[in-house]
Structure formats: C-alpha cells, structure tokens
Design a protein around this nucleic acid. Structure first.
Length: 723
DNA sequence: TAGCTTGTATTTTTT
DNA sequence: ATACAAGCTA
C-alpha cells in the first residue's frame, strides 16, 4: 500500500503525507494537488499507521468539498472511510452540540436559523426594544452580531467594549437576540461554532473527550478560518497536537466575512514545533500563466513567500483586450468563445467567464443570448429562501419543536385562520405573564381558557393546534416526504394557492412539490445508508440537512455551456480557457476596496485566484467606458494588468466571427438546452436560448416569435419540449 | 390586504 | 438603471 500511495506523489507531497505526528502546515499553492495530498495522508494514517478511522477528523468549508473528499478517501480506503469524520465546520459542531448542548441550557432538538430567520428575529428584537429600524438598520446590526460571534464575543463583552451609543444599543440588541434564540431553542450559523467553543471552555471534561476522540485533525482552507473556527481547532488539537492545517494564504478572499489571514500566517507561532511544507509545483497551468500570477502577488506585502512553478509548457501569451464599452466587451468574449471552439476545439464547458460583481453578468448574458451561445450562470437564486418553501419548512419546524416561536408566528395565520395581530398579541401577553411557551398558551386559548378572544379566532387557533398535534403524533412513524405532503394538504396551504389561480401561485405550488421530492430523496438516502427506519428521527435529520445545504454545492461543470460566475465562486475550479472581464480601476479592484491596503490586497488575491484557474488560455478584458448605476464612467486600466510583465501579454484585436448558429450541446437546466424547441401554453412555440440555475432553480430563457424573450422556471412553467 | 408610490442602496458568500 | 423594501392608500 505504501508504494501505491506514495508513487504518484512528488517530494513535497510525499513529505506532507508522511508527516502525521505533530502540527503540520501545508501551504498548498493553486493547482498543486492539495486534495490529493490530503486524501492520501488520511489513507496513510489508516493503512500505514494503523490509526483507527474514528480518530480522524477532516474539516472543510463547503459541503461540496466535504463530499468530494469523502468520495476520494473512500476510493483509497474503502468502507472504513465511513468511520472518518469528514464534514464542514458547521456540521461537525452540530454533531457535537446534538449530544452536549444541554450543558448550555438548550435542548438537543434545537433548530438552526438561516439568514432570513435571523433578519426577522433582529427586527423583532428592535421592536421589543422600541428602536427605530431606520436608525438601527437590521442588516447592520446583524452583521455586527455575526462579527461579534466570529470573534467569540458575548453580548456582555460587546457591552463592555462599547465606545459609543451605537455600540451600547448593539450590545442590548445582541443580548435580546441571544435570549430569544434560547427561548426558541434555536441557534444561528455563527452560534454553531461559538457555542461549541463556549461549551468546550466551560466543560473541560467534554473537551477532553473530543480531544481523545479526534487525535488526528485536518483543517482544509485554513486561510478562510475566522477566529471562532480557529479557536475551535486549537482547542481540539491542544492535547495531542496532531493538527494538519492546509491552505494557501494567497487564496484568502473571504476577509470580508471574518476570515482571518493571521490564523495561517501565525501557525508557527501557535505551534512552534510545526513542520511547514510548501507545495509549489503546479500541475494545472502554463508557465506564462503562473509567471503572471506570481508577479502580481509580489505586490502584496506580508504574505508568506511562495512561488509556483511548473513543468508544463510555456503556452500561448495572455490575451489582453480593450473594449469600447461593456457591450463590446461581451461581444469580444462571444467572438473568442466561437474561435476557441472552432480553432482550439474546446467544448463550451471548458470555457469560463469571471467577473467581480453579479451585476456584470447581465450584459454578458444578453449578448450570449443574442449570439446563441449556450451559457450557464453559477450562483444567484435560492430555493430554500423562497417564501412558500420557508412556510412549509416552518410548519415542519414547529411540529418538531413547538418552542420555535419564530416559525410559529410565521405560519400561525398562513393560510388565514382569522388569527390576527390582536389575537396573537393577547396570547403572547398571556404566555409572557404565565411564563409559558407561545405554543402552550395557544393550546389554552384553543380550549377557551384565555378570555377576550373572539369565537372565530378561537376556532382558528383550535384548528391550528389540532393540526400541529396531529402531525406531532405521526411525525416519528411516517416518512418525511409524507409528512411534507400532509403539511401541504392539511394546513390548507395548497388549497390557498390553488384558489389564487395565478401563474405565481402555480409556481409556488410547484416549488412545494419540489420540496416533497427533496424530502423523498432524503428519505431514500436514509434507507440506503441505513441511518434510520422510515420516519425514525427523520424529521430532525431532514430539517438539519436542508438547513446546512447550499445551492452552490453543485456547480455543474459538465453542462455543455459557457460558465459565468463571480471570481469568488471560481475558487477551487479550473478551466482550459478563462476570461476575466471588467479589469478596470473601480470595478476590479472594486471601488470600495481601494482605500484600505488590506482590502486592496484581498482584491489582488482574488485576481490571483482568477488567473490560476486557467490551464492554458487566459483573457484579460477591460472596457474603456461603461454604464454604472445609470451613468457613464471612464475607468482607468486595472492596476493588476499593469502588474503583469508586458512580454507575457499580447494585445488582441476584435476577431469578428461570422455568427454561426447551431451549438448542439447538452445543458443542465431541467433537460432543456439552448436550441431546443418548446411549446408554452400561453406564448406558443419558441426556442430555448439560455439556461441558468439547476434543480428547482433551473431557469431557461426562451425566444417566442412575436412575443420576445421570456424567462421561465423549468419546474413550474407550462412547457412542453418538442422533439 | 393588495397594489401602488417613494426611497435607497448598489462587492464578494458559506453555513 | 434598477431592484428591493418600506410606507401608504383604496
């Protein structure tokens, strides 16, 4: 096995795999075989060192990365891989908290609040404190609370450090916010990490248990850790000190959300005995591309020295193009995409376009649409944040946990049951006085034990309580998808939508159906993995799985369409041909980021990330003028262009390609692809010209003669595909 | 309560 | 320009 494991590795990678005792920092440059090294290392621990798999923990940032690593480890070590914990930070903490959280005063069946929930909770808190949301923007408050939690600051600590009135108010809101979370038996995303740390700090014996459980710790993307995550890892590693941090300070692009570059830069201070291993050989890009990337990064101060090199060929020069405006910029991209396809024989899915902000995607989209080039936009829409989906999930959450007042209030009168503000206020008031949960007070109200409530409202309350009670009775006995179906029907939610009789309602109904499918998939997966019998603990697990997923986990790269995405979403991917557009001062680097040196450096790292995605063809594009917020601006050339040695660049002319139509490539959107003929109930026959999103999000743009372009959700639109 | 008007911001994103 | 949210009228 040793030979097998080590044969495909270079010197540095081999060292990284071998060095399993004590702290190790693996500085893994872009395209240096990081995941390979990490997975081999885990295999080495199991096979060569005979470490029991349950002593190994690997932490990633995204579900996607976790799944990928699990699969690759599984391929190396087989079934025992299932005993290795490979999860995101949040998932690891949830698993720990599910066992231990009673020590913190929450119940084990806590729910996880997402950003939408958080926002309504903050608004509630502001109301409770009689604060003007104009003056104290919920968004800002929420951001500050999140920052505080990332820094492991409790409300009390925030109060103590307050420097002005705003800080004092903030501390108050934060305090109320935490109290409300506790009352609702809920945790937000940041809490998952922070509460686990607090748990460890408060209960040394619990920490001790997990330290012994996870003797071999791996943290991927270490440069993206925030302070709370850093402390979490440090605590876990403190006893056995076998921590393997993997990361690349050059690819730290999430400072704006709390990632602290110092975590990786100071690793050797935290662990003086640490071995530092640099993976600098790149297997992805041409020499030209790597030189450009290295040169750009020389303009950043205070990062670890690292220079990528490769045995790959020189490759073609980097193309630089200066467009008139953003439309011409997009036209250039379109023309070059055609050329790459024709002359370089690239598939469309081998080509990607990166931009700094989402707003830039529109013009690109319009032009590609016009040019009949299939494209696919990564990111954007969110299935789980849609109102109807959140409503149904709120029902399930209340069924699972009646103390979840936020969810309860969300659905108590949806569909309408005649329970208005007045009734609700009365019951809430009663609950407060009697120190009851809102749900228990509702039960009393239904039984007529709370005065001042009209008979009609009481009936509404009664029907609501009955519904929840019914569902609670069966929740452990039936599969989750049946439960969802039951909520849809018995709550009257579907009936309400059916009555509306609008396209929008139809779309909402389809989304709810989609949620049933999600639940069904989930249930089937549970059966396969043998995690539980039908329904058994399924609801809780289901709610958790939807709370921790994100759409971005499935960037579909095999889709036969040009991929359009922000530079941030590009991290971790690679393409034979890459376009980076909008290379102008104020766009990229972004105007908001040029005042502060640290932010500018993050922009530069973002540029580095973009460039190092390219295997062979790299295009850097700027527009002479562009329309921004409604007026024309003339931005200078991005400094990043200036930082690339001239001899690596070749300024190109616009290659006007005769528009050739007829791309016949598969696309991901619900089985539709550009070029398909479809029939629509209302608009008749049309041609698919673009796709966007996946799964329940999938959207297609269709050209209907005489009607124009229409954007349709595949899952809901009354569409039929014509052979 | 829906639909309208008015105001305001407008990087990047995961869980 | 535009999108989205909050406030206001029918």
């Amino acid at each position: 096995m040793t030979g097998k494991i080590l044969s495909g590795l270079n010197e540095a990678q081999r060292e990284a795999v071998h060095t399993v005792e004590g702290p190790v920092l693996i500085l893994a440059g872009a395209g240096s075989g990081k995941t390979r090294t990490l997975t081999y290392r885990i295999a080495y621990l199991v096979y060569e060192k005979g470490i029991p798999p349950y002593h190994i923990l690997a932490i990633t940032f995204t579900n996607k990365a976790a799944v990928e690593m699990k699969e690759r480890v599984h391929r190396l070590v087989g079934g025992v891989a299932n005993q290795i914990w490979i999860h995101t930070f949040h998932a690891v903490c949830v698993r720990i908290l599910r066992r231990e959280i009673p020590h913190l005063g929450y119940r084990r069946d806590f729910v996880i609040y997402d950003t939408v929930d958080q926002s309504s909770l903050v608004k509630d808190c502001l109301k409770e404190l009689n604060l003007d949301p104009q003056r104290y923007a919920p968004k800002g408050i929420l951001a500050a609370i999140s920052r505080a939690k990332n820094e492991l600051m409790t409300p009390r600590m925030v109060a103590k450090r307050a420097e002005d009135l705003y800080d004092e108010i903030l501390a108050r809101v934060y305090q109320v916010y935490q109290r409300r979370l506790l009352e609702n038996n809920a945790l937000d995303f940041d809490d998952l990490i922070m509460q686990t740390v607090l748990l460890f700090r408060k209960n040394p014996e619990i920490l001790d248990y997990y330290q012994d459980r996870f003797r071999y710790l791996h943290i991927d993307e270490y440069q993206d850790t925030n302070h709370a995550q850093y402390v979490f890892a440090r605590l876990l590693a403190a006893k056995h000190r076998n921590i393997c941090a993997v990361g690349d300070d050059f690819q730290s692009i999430y400072g704006f959300r709390g990632a602290d570059l110092r975590n990786i830069l100071d690793f050797e201070k935290d662990y003086p005995e640490a071995r530092v291993i640099k993976l600098e050989q790149n297997y992805r890009s041409t020499k030209t591309i790597l030189t450009a990337a290295n040169e750009i990064m020389k303009h950043n101060q205070g990062q670890k020295f690292k220079e990528l090199w490769t045995e790959n060929e020189e490759g073609p020069p980097i193309s630089y193009y200066e467009a008139e405006d953003e439309v011409e910029e997009a036209e250039f991209v379109a023309a070059e995409v055609r050329r790459l396809k024709r002359e370089e024989k690239l598939a469309l899915s081998e080509i990607a376009v990166f931009y700094r902000t989402h707003a830039q995607s529109r013009v690109l989209e319009e032009v590609l649409l016009r040019e009949r080039i299939p494209y696919h936009i990564v990111g954007g829409l969110k299935f789980y944040e849609r109102k109807e989906v959140k409503d149904i999930l709120a029902y399930l959450r209340v069924v699972h946990n009646p103390a979840d007042t936020l969810s309860l209030e969300r659905i108590i009168n949806t569909p309408r049951r005649g329970i208005g503000i007045r009734t609700l206020t009365r019951v809430k008031e009663y609950a407060r006085r009697q120190a009851l949960d809102l749900y228990d007070a509702l039960k009393l109200a239904a039984a007529g034990q709370i005065g001042q409530i009209k008979e009609k409202s009481r009936q509404g309350v009664r029907s609501f309580v009955t519904l929840i009670e019914q569902l609670r009775e069966i929740k452990d006995a039936c599969p989750v998808d049946d439960l969802v179906r039951m909520v849809n029907e018995k709550s009257g939610y579907l009936a309400m939508l059916r009555k509306e009789n609008t396209y929008e309602a139809l779309s909402r109904m389809e989304n709810i159906q989609e949620l049933v499918s999600v639940a069904k998939d989930f249930e089937e997966r549970q059966q396969v993995t043998g995690a539980a019998g039908p329904g058994e603990g399924g609801l809780e697990a289901f709610l958790e799985s939807v709370a921790l997923v994100s759409e971005a986990d499935n960037v579909d790269t095999g889709a036969g369409a040009v991929l359009l995405m922000t530079l941030h979403s590009a991290k971790g991917l690679e393409f034979p041909a890459v376009f980076i557009v909008g290379l102008e001062e104020g766009v990229f680097p972004h105007r908001e980021a040029v005042f502060e040196a640290s932010e500018l450096e993050e922009e530069r790292r973002l540029c580095y990330v973009g460039i190092t995605r390219a295997k062979r063809h790299l295009y850097l594009v700027r527009a002479f003028q562009r329309t921004l917020y409604g007026n024309t601006v003339y931005n200078g050339i991005s400094r990043f262009i200036e930082e690339i040695p001239r001899e690596l660049l070749r300024e190109v002319e616009r290659g006007d390609e005769a528009a050739v139509s007829g791309f016949q490539t598969p696309a991901p959107a619900g089985g539709f692809k550009a070029g398909d003929r479809v029939s629509h109930k209302v608009w008749g026959v049309g041609t698919v010209v673009g796709t966007r999103g996946i799964g329940p999000e999938a959207e297609i743009t269709v050209a209907f003669p005489g009607v124009g372009l229409k954007r349709l959700l595949v899952s809901i639109a009354p569409l039929e595909k014509l052979q």
